[in-house]
Computed example of a mutant assay.
Amino acid sequence: MSSEIYKAIEDFRYLLNRGYNRSSALRFVSDKYGLDIKGRNILERSVFSEKDAKRRRSKLVDIKEIHDQRLLIDGYNVLITVENILYGGEIVECDDGFIRDVSATFGKYKIKKETFGALDKILSILKKFNPGEVIFCFDSQVSYSGRLSQIVRNELKRRNIRGNAKTFKNVDYVLINESGIVCTSDRVIIDKVKKVLDIPRYIYKMRS
């Protein structure tokens, strides 16, 4: 990242720690340093007040804790981030301890060879740590979500992992209201659940 981005990160964090409105502070800092969309995405996804970051970090569970537990996986969120880690995409280590991508490709997602590589890595980890049940949740409004869910179901069955993959009109609602450990880096969801597992973070640390 450029020196301008690092300066912008410091300024944005400074304003957030002093209680400034997040949207207003982001706009002010981005304009000050002339950041492009990518730069704004980096700030938006990675920089938080110390208070918010500490609260979210307290919800992170160690991957060893998923044994015999029910996992709810934010399908596109986790899959896209793992793809970026494995195949050279842009990812950032965030103030709140989570790993996030800055690609903003969610609504335009397409099934490709990288999909299968990322899915293989995710399922290999799940197999190793043996959760009681795994539910992959995909957004029905994204093209080919039904096909992707079928691919995941087939792989779960082939690897003898107890679980399912489904499409939902409102994945956020499901993740927030169903019982289980939630796998996501979406801060809106994190703020409303009790326990969170960051699978991409585990994969990233393994490769570092």
Rank of each mutant, 00 (worst) to 15 (best):
G117F: 07
V102L: 11
V196W: 00
K121N: 00
S208A: 08
Y76E: 04
N84Q: 02
D68Y: 08
M1Y: 09
D96V: 08
V92S: 01
I63H: 00
D11S: 04
K112T: 13
E83A: 00
E114D: 07
T115G: 03
R40M: 13
N164I: 03
L79M: 10
I189L: 03
G39Y: 09
K169Y: 14
Q150D: 09
Y87L: 09
T115S: 04
G19H: 08
V47L: 12
G75C: 05
G146N: 11
L16C: 13
C137N: 14
V182E: 05
A104C: 05
L86S: 04
S30K: 11
I151E: 08
V61D: 01
V171Q: 07
L197V: 05
E90V: 06
N41H: 02
N21V: 11
R159G: 05
F136Y: 09
F116K: 05
N84C: 00
D139Y: 01
G34S: 04
V193N: 00
D31N: 15
Y109L: 10
A104D: 14
I122L: 01
D96S: 12
E83R: 07
S46P: 11
S103G: 14
R55H: 00
F136H: 10
L72Y: 02
G146A: 09
S185D: 04
D96C: 12
K54R: 15
Y109G: 08
N154D: 14
Y202F: 15
F116Y: 15
Q150N: 08
T167N: 06
Y76A: 01
F12T: 09
K195H: 09
I189H: 05
I63F: 05
L72F: 11
S3L: 12
F136V: 09
D191M: 09
R57P: 03
Y33A: 00
Q141I: 13
S23I: 07
S145H: 04
D52I: 09
I199Q: 03
S46F: 05
G39R: 07
